[in-house]
Simulated assay, not measured.
Amino acid sequence: MATDFAALLHRFLTTHLAGLRGCSPHTIASYRDTFKLLIVFFRDDRSIPPEKLTLNHLDATAITEFLNWLQTSRHNSASTRNQRLAAISSFHRWMQTQDPTRMARCQDILAIPAKRQPQPAVNHLTVEQTRRLLAQPDRTTRPGRRDATLLATLYDTAARVQELADLTVRDIRLQPPALAAVTGKGDKTRHVPLTDNTTTLLRAYLAEHHLDQPGRDDHPVFFNQHRNKLSRGGITWIIRK
């Protein structure tokens, strides 16, 4: 028979996150990974096997020790620690409505503070540095024209690398006003205007690869030799080279 923790965790990940809240697969995977690590912590550090782990084992002290374990034993950053805490807090915030007798214990866990971390200074490129960066690709070659278009699109949209990788032809509007529909975390889409230069590059690039033809709406804008969308690593390599 499943423990109370196992039963509630299953409902939280499947019914609550996936069903009621409609979280993305990436978000659910992140939450799932957090609880996998929590289970490993109890097994390895407290000698409590998964099949015996119950809600009574989860209190503010145990969760704090788990967070410290992430940083000391697994060498996680403060940012990763805070992400794990956010997932655990979400679970206990929801659990208050499932078992009110545990509200006090849940609220003790919800009171655990996130770890403060220094905010890195954000360095911006000057106009001249940006101009030189965008001029780097060799536009006499097909890969160079792709790279020039990719960099210009990245500059205009300020997209994350994964957001750029996920762009499909249907996300690009070249008719005035030209824009890109960029979908980010939580499947939230923002519409970003494109400059005339980027619009010109995209129009030529899509035509060169026959992506301006009917039936290509779901094709990735930036793709590899197998016509699969570029990976985050592939885009990072283009940016750095």
Rank of each mutant, 00 (worst) to 15 (best):
T3F: 04
L8Q: 12
L8H: 12
L8F: 10
L9H: 08
H10Q: 15
L13F: 07
L13H: 04
H16F: 14
L17A: 09
A18Q: 15
G19Q: 06
L20T: 13
C23L: 08
T27Y: 05
T27H: 04
I28K: 03
R32H: 12
D33V: 01
D33N: 14
D33K: 10
T34K: 11
K36G: 08
K36M: 10
L37Q: 11
L37M: 10
L38E: 04
I39K: 12
V40I: 13
F41Q: 13
D45S: 14
I48W: 03
E51M: 04
L53C: 13
T54P: 03
L58I: 14
T61V: 05
I63A: 03
T64D: 14
N68D: 11
W69V: 05
W69D: 03
S73P: 00
N76G: 01
S77R: 02
A78V: 00
R81W: 01
R81L: 00
N82K: 01
Q83V: 01
Q83A: 09
L85H: 00
L85I: 00
A86V: 07
A87Q: 02
S89T: 14
S90C: 02
F91R: 02
H92F: 11
H92K: 00
R93D: 13
T97Q: 11
Q98M: 01
D99E: 11
D99I: 11
I109M: 12
L110H: 09
L110Y: 03
I112Q: 01
P113K: 07
A114W: 11
A114K: 15
K115C: 06
Q117W: 15
Q117I: 13
Q119Y: 02
Q119K: 12
P120H: 05
A121S: 08
V122N: 14
N123W: 05
N123R: 08
H124W: 05
L125D: 02
T126I: 07
V127N: 09
T130A: 09
R131G: 02
A135Q: 08
T141R: 13
T141A: 15
T141Q: 14
P143R: 06
G144R: 04
A148W: 00
A148Y: 00
T153F: 12
T153A: 11
D156Y: 06
A158S: 09
A159P: 10
R160F: 12
V161N: 03
V161M: 08
E163M: 05
A165L: 04
D166F: 02
L167I: 03
T168N: 08
R170M: 10
I172H: 01
L179D: 08
L179S: 09
G186A: 04
D187P: 07
D187H: 14
D196C: 05
N197S: 15
T200I: 06
A204T: 03
Y205Q: 12
L206A: 05
A207P: 04
E208A: 15
E208M: 14
H210C: 05
D212G: 09
P214V: 05
D218P: 13
H219F: 03
V221E: 05
V221Y: 03
Q225T: 06
H226M: 13
L230G: 06
L230W: 01
L230Q: 01
S231E: 11
R232V: 08
I239F: 06
R240T: 13
